[in-house]
Design a protein around this nucleic acid. Structure first.
Lengths: 192, 192, 192, 192
DNA sequence: TCATAAGCGAGACGGTACGTCGTGTCTTACG
DNA sequence: CGTAAGACACGACGTACCGTCTCGCTTATGA
C-alpha cells in the first residue's frame, strides 16, 4: 500500500494530519492513535491503508515532498544550480526530522526503499541531468565533464548538511558550494 | 554519562553486544532487554551507565567508530584525499544502519548532539584542515582556496551516498569525486 | 424485534446459520460478520431484523428450542415425568453452550428476559401443571401436594446439571430423580 | 495460572478490583484496562498472572466464593439443609451475573472447567454428604436413602432458580424445598 | 574473622503504544 | 425499496518495550 501516488481525499487528510503531528512531535512521539483521533478517524481506517506506522509515515513524507519536478530555467547554469540548491535546502529543512526517521525504516524494508528511490532520488536525477544538458547545449560546459555517478553532489551535500552535520545550509552555503566546488568541477580541464 | 571515552571491560562488553544487536536488528528492533540478556547482565546494570536506550546506542556507535584520527600522510594532496575518502566509506559502510538510527535520536537530544559533533565531526574537520594546510605548504593549492564552511564536502557527500541515496560509494566513486570535484574546486582560479 | 415467532424463510436461514456457528464456536467467538458471510448476506440485513448480536442469538436459540409443547400423555404420572425429564435432557444437552451464552445477555436486558420467560419457562410451567393436574384427577397424588413455587424442580435440576455442574444427566439420572425425589415429594404426607 | 488457590496480596487486590467491577458492570462491560487502572497496575501485571480476561474473571469469581466449607451443624437434618440452602442463595445471589459469565468460559476451556469443579462442586459435595451421614447416624434417615448421583438437588435447584429462571429463591423457597421435596425424598420408603 | 556495604543478576512493575478484531452504523450500487 | 458489499468510528484485546524498582546473592573492605 505504498505505490498508488494518488490518494483519495480522505487519505490525503490522514497524511496531512500525520505530517503535521510528525513535525510537531518527531517519529516516535507520534502515535497512530493520535493521528486517528486528530483526523476523527479510526485506527482501523489508518491501518487498512498503511499496514504499519512506518509505512504511514513514509507515505506522509513522500506526499509532503511532491512539489519538486519544476525545472528552474533561469537561463544560466549557475542560476539553475543555485536555485536548485535553495529548493533542496528549503524542502529538507522543513522535513529533516521526518526524513531522518524515514531513513531508518527505509533501510530495513526493500519495498519502502524502492518507493523512496523513485519518489525522491530518480526525479532529482533527471532534473539535474536536464540542467546540465542545457548548459552543455549553451556551451557553458563540455558534455564530457558530466560524471554520471556524481550528478547528486550538490543536493547530496546539502542534504548531508541538513541531516547529519549540525550545520544547516544557508543561501551563502549554496552559493559557495556552486561557485567553489560544483562549477569548478564541471568546468575543469577534461584532460587532467 | 556520555563523555568518558574510557570504559571498563564490562562496559565495553555491553557496548559490543549493543553494537552487534544493533547491526543485526536496527535501532527499534533492538531492545535493552535483549542487550542485557545477551550480555548476561541485568537491565539495571545497563541503565546505571546509560540513562536511556538512545544514549546506550550512541555510546556503542561512538565506540564502534573510534579508529579515525590517524592522518593519511601519503605525501600528496590527492593521495591524502583519496585515502580519507576510502576510510570514510569503510567506516560508514559498516555502520550505516546504526548511524541512521543514531541520527534520529541525536536530532532530538541536544546533549547527544553535542557529543556527536565532538566525536564525529570536529575530529574530521581538524584532520581535513590539516591535510589542506599541508597541501598549501607544499604549494599544491592556494591557502585562500580553502572554504571554511565547505571543508566536509568530501566526507559529507560520501556519507550522503551511504545513508540516504541507495548507492553506496565505491573506490571509483571516491577517485572520481576527488579528481572531478574536490581537486578542481581547490585548484580553481581564485579570482573568479 | 423479538416476539413474532414467525420468521420469513430468509430469516430462518439466518437464524440457522447463527445457531450452527453458535454451537461450533460459542457466543463470543461468534461474529456477526461470520453469520452474514456464511449466509451470503450483508450485516445490514442482519441488523435490520435483530438490533444486536445478543438478540440475534436469543432468536436463534428460541428458534432452536421450539419443539417442546407436546404433552407426554403416557397415562401415568411417573411415565409423564420421566418422559418430560428426558425431553429436557435432550433439548438442553444439544443447546447447553448456546443457553449459557444466552443467559449472560438475558440477565442484562429486561426485554430479552421477558421473552426468555415466555418462550422457555411459562410453556414448561403450564405443561407441568397439566401433568400434575391429570395425576390428581387420576388420584395418584393429592392436589394440595403441588407446590406452586416448586413446579420446576424436575426440569430445573436437570438444567442445572447440564449447564453448571459438569455432570450431564442421563436417563438413569432422570429415573432416579423422579423416583427418589419428585414422586416422594408429591406423595408425601400432607399433614407433616 | 489458575490453580494456586493462594494468591499474593497484590494478586488478591487485583482480584477484588476485578470482582467489584464485575458486579458493577457485568462481564463484557468489564475491561482489563479498567481493572488495571483501578488497581493502579499495568495491564502487563494482570496478564502476567492470568493469560486472558476470562481466566482473570474466573479467578476473581473463585476467590469471591471461597467462604463455604463451614458445615452448618444445627443438630437436625432439616436445620442443616435449610441453613445450607440459605447459604447457597446468599452466595449465588450476589454472584449470579458473574457466575453466568464464568459458565460460558468454563464450558469452553477444559482447564478452567477442572478448576471450577474442584472449587465449586466438590467442596459442596463433601459438605452435603457429611450432613447426610450425620443424619443417618442420628437415625433421621436411612443411609441407603442417599443417592450418590443426586446429592446436589438442593443447591442445584436453588442455583437454577438464581441463574436461569427469573425467580430468585427466598427463605420460603428454601423451607418449602426442604420440607416438600428434599426431606420426603430422603425419608421415602426405600422398598418403593 | 566477621559484618556492613556496594555491585550485580533476575525479573516484577507502571506506563504506554502497537496492531488486530468485533460491533453497530452508514453509504454505495445493483436488481 | 430491499439487498450485498464493505468502509467507517469506536473501543477492547493481548503483546511488547522502556525505564524504575525490589529482592537476594556475591564480593570486597573495615573493625
Amino acid at each position: 500500500m505504498v505505490d498508488p501516488v494518488t490518494w483519495s481525499p480522505r487519505e490525503i487528510e490522514l497524511l496531512e494530519v500525520t505530517l503535521q503531528l510528525l513535525q510537531e512531535n518527531g517519529y516516535d512521539r507520534l502515535t497512530v492513535d493520535a493521528v486517528a483521533a486528530t483526523a476523527r478517524a479510526s485506527k482501523a481506517t489508518v491501518y487498512r491503508r498503511w499496514p504499519s506506522k512506518a509505512e504511514l509515515v513514509l507515505a506522509a513524507f513522500t506526499e509532503g515532498i511532491r512539489q519538486v519536478a519544476v525545472p528552474p530555467e533561469t537561463g544560466t547554469l549557475r542560476g539553475d544550480l543555485v536555485r536548485l540548491g535553495e529548493l533542496v535546502c528549503e524542502q529538507i529543512g522543513r522535513q529533516a526530522g521526518t526524513l531522518r526517521a524515514v531513513l531508518v525504516e527505509v533501510s530495513r524494508n526493500p519495498a519502502l526503499n524502492e518507493v523512496m528511490q523513485h519518489q525522491f532520488v530518480d526525479q532529482r536525477k533527471s532534473l539535474m541531468l536536464e540542467i546540465l544538458g542545457q548548459a552543455a547545449q549553451r556551451g557553458e560546459i563540455e558534455a564530457a565533464a558530466v560524471d554520471e555517478d556524481l550528478w547528486d553532489v550538490l543536493p547530496g551535500y546539502l542534504i548531508f548538511r541538513s541531516l547529519v552535520s549540525g550545520r544547516a545550509p544557508t543561501a551563502g552555503t549554496v552559493a559557495n558550494l556552486v561557485d567553489n566546488v560544483i562549477l569548478p568541477g564541471l568546468k575543469r580541464d577534461i584532460d587532467s
